[in-house]
Simulated assay, not measured.
Amino acid sequence: MGTIKLKNIRTFSYHGCLVEEGKIGSDYTTDLEIKTDLRKSSLSDKLEDTVDYVLLNRIVVEEMAIRSHLLEHVAHRIVARIFKEIPAVSRIMLSVSKINPPIGGDVEAVTIEMEEYRN
């Protein structure tokens, strides 16, 4: 087994329960870690023998572009899509952070984390 990590994927998205959040948007960061078998690609040196992190990044960016009220919902969509499109992934650790959330206090970010295993 092995691990592929994408750290601090930055997007500007429109998630949130407030109407204003859907209009003005916010900055977000996403961290993604997947477990997969890296033995074949470590020997072959071929992209088709591993999980392409360009595809992982594209999935995150595309799903972050679809408005959700809750970070949990967008995170679930990211996880479900990775499992659907990339059979080699056996486990996903994902965190999604809203930078400077409008919660009436001086808070740098609010973050949700999910860990899911392929059934």
Rank of each mutant, 00 (worst) to 15 (best):
S13K: 01
K35C: 14
C17F: 10
I34V: 15
M1F: 05
A109T: 07
L70W: 01
Y14T: 03
N100W: 02
E62S: 14
H73G: 06
V89Y: 04
Y14E: 02
P87L: 06
E63W: 05
T11E: 05
I34C: 11
H73P: 00
G25K: 08
L71N: 06
D45T: 10
L94E: 03
F83V: 05
L6Q: 02
N57A: 15
N100Y: 07
G104M: 07
R39C: 14
L38Q: 11
I103R: 04
K46H: 15
L94K: 03
I59Q: 11
L47P: 14
I103A: 07
C17D: 02
Y117C: 08
R118D: 00
I103T: 08
Y117I: 14
L38P: 07
K40M: 14
I86A: 04
I24L: 11
S42W: 09
K7D: 05
V19M: 05
H69W: 05
K23E: 13
I59E: 10
R39P: 00
R58T: 15
E115I: 14
I103D: 07
P102K: 04
R10E: 08
V89F: 09
A80I: 00
I59K: 09
T3W: 07
P101M: 05
L47H: 15
T111M: 08
V107F: 09
E48L: 12
K7V: 03
L55K: 15
I103K: 06
R39Y: 06
E21W: 05
E115C: 12
K35H: 11
S95V: 04
M93Y: 06
I4H: 02
R77C: 03
I4E: 02
L56W: 09
P102L: 06
G105M: 11
V107C: 13
P101S: 06
A80D: 10
L94H: 05
T111F: 02
K98T: 01
D37P: 12
G105V: 01
F83N: 07
V74D: 05
F12C: 01
T11K: 00
L6R: 01
G22N: 07
Y14L: 04
T50R: 12
T11C: 10
I82G: 03
L18V: 01
L70C: 06
A109E: 14
V19Q: 12
E20P: 02
S41F: 11
V51L: 10
R118T: 01
A75D: 05
